[in-house]
Nucleic acid binder design. Structure first.
Lengths: 193, 193
DNA sequence: TTTATTTCTTAACCTAAGGTAACATATTTA
DNA sequence: TAAATATGTTACCTTAGGTTAAGAAATAAA
């Protein structure tokens, strides 16, 4: 399982055997049951998550109902906003599936960056890539209709459509569950005619 | 004008007089006329922009018309996706106003990171902040209606509504120019009644 | 298994955004 | 200045998402 993490890291930097062992010794690997809430609204956690297997979701509770805005699956990381700016979290994070992930906090980060400066380089490059990727995702969202967004997701992340409940997918796509249902029916209808 | 940059940098790291002078010597400061196109679709530029004064915008041309998805004003930076992944750019970047900005490419970045390792730290922290901020922005967009988005922008960035043409604001808010016009009229009507 | 609970779909009605077009202003530019 | 272009508003009609509510299907719990 740790291999997944090291395989990911190897895309950015090269680690020695010793360095890998040191990382393993930090006890950052966790196995979490489906439904577990990792972060609650109002909490002030310093934890960052990196998913090795499974899926976690980020959601808000607005006027009493859940608005899911993001999913993080294999090889995707989430650094909650509250861990950056030290304010209480505005959202929840929970496990959609039984999930294996790493949980690291800022202290550990500082320790790693001091001990292994190349970690600093990796995190900079990864973050820069992420900034650019997120901007593209946001642009795509802005410039397309809900139906296009759904079709786009079907192309790029067919797995998400399989593994995620429709009503959570709906708010992820920026519509109500009923609209997603209708929109899907419309697409089927088009493909028939 | 360079003070604006150094003031920004000082939020992350402390520079000596010598280091500042070295940075100035790199000739990264540019004054650009309104309307200038910095990056075109299909181009494969390595340049990154950081706005000191003025405003640049990012836009796509889809089915013949412009879709503006982002603006960058004072103290905001744009690293085009193409500079990260080395593919041709999918979008344009142009100056909305006469603008003063820094233009740096990857080679310069590598040189800076080697010479001043603390630059690496600054860029990592800044990128991580940006990732978190962008996610919040995207979440807000997903969970609100066009009208709410407009009112939200009016609160958080009233300057943008003043300095940016309506039809560009419209696509930034994810609607057509006519819809923004109508939506604004609706708000005025509500405040009257 | 039976009962709850959650999830998904469908339908009717309402509201707001998209599409097209006309018109009114600005703002360029010749 | 006059002509051309770009920008903003309004109106009409169409399309699609929001709302409410009912019911079906799947899942979890008793």
């Amino acid at each position: 399982m740790q291999d997944i993490l090291f395989n990911f890291i190897s895309k950015y930097i090269t680690l020695t055997e010793d360095e890998m062992n040191e990382i393993i010794s930090f006890d950052i690997f966790h196995s979490v049951k489906r439904g577990t809430i990792l972060l609650k609204e109002g909490q002030n956690s310093q934890d960052e998550y990196f998913v090795l297997k499974g899926c976690i979701r980020k959601y808000y509770i607005i006027d009493g109902d859940e608005k899911t805005t993001a999913f993080f699956t294999e090889m995707e990381g989430l650094t909650p906003h509250c861990a950056i700016n030290n304010n209480p979290s505005e959202y929840f994070v929970s496990c959609l599936e039984d999930t294996i992930l790493t949980i690291a906090n800022k202290d550990l980060g500082v320790e790693l960056f001091t001990k292994f400066p190349k970690f600093e380089i990796m995190c900079r490059i990864y973050s820069e890539e992420l900034v650019a990727k997120q901007q593209i995702d946001f642009d795509e969202f802005k410039t397309s209709s809900p139906e296009q967004r759904y079709l786009n997701l079907l192309q790029k992340r067919p797995d998400l459509i399989q593994r995620i409940p429709q009503h959570q997918l709906a708010s992820f796509l920026g519509v109500k569950p009923q609209s997603l249902s209708r929109l899907r029916a419309r697409i089927v209808e088009k493909n028939k005619g």
